[in-house]
């Protein structure tokens, strides 16, 4: 976590997918200070999205941040992704969906709450 699911109505080149994954990671980590090794980005392609939408991003993020922080994250992600893809912002749909950290296991450990990453054994071993 986070897990960003990027859904597109057309295929995207693999190099661009990777670059976009990096853009998403940098924005997420830049704002939340979450470890980069937390950030998952997956792609689903050739999906008939809502009319006028070219790309949909659904971010599953850990619950526990302020609503202001999530609003800022949504805003920066929206602007950053649209800018990277060089598309009109209206073509991009983006929303966050919060999940309790204690409901998710990664690296064999229950995820720490936002801001408590230093206590995570799995992360300490990775770095």
């Amino acid at each position: 976590m986070p897990m960003y699911t990027v859904t597109t109505n057309k295929p995207m080149a693999i190099a661009k997918r990777q670059e976009l994954a990096r853009v998403i990671m940098n924005i997420h980590c830049g704002l939340t200070h979450a470890p980069q090794t937390f950030v998952n980005v997956v792609y689903s392609q050739n999906v008939s999205l809502r009319k006028g939408i070219a790309i949909n991003i659904l971010g599953n993020v850990r619950k526990g941040r302020t609503s202001e922080m999530n609003a800022q994250l949504t805003k920066e992600m929206h602007e950053g992704v649209a800018s990277f893809l060089n598309i009109n912002r209206n073509l991009l749909e983006l929303s966050l969906f919060e999940v309790n950290a204690s409901w998710v296991m990664e690296g064999g450990d229950i995820l720490p709450e936002p801001g408590e990453e230093e206590d995570c054994e799995w992360l300490r071993q990775k770095h």
Partner: peptide, 15 residues
């Protein structure tokens, strides 16, 4: 392959 990334690198993780 190439549709899943962890820390912006290709990932083999199952969810």
């Amino acid at each position: 392959f190439g549709q899943s990334f962890l820390a912006a690198e290709n990932s083999t993780t199952s969810t």
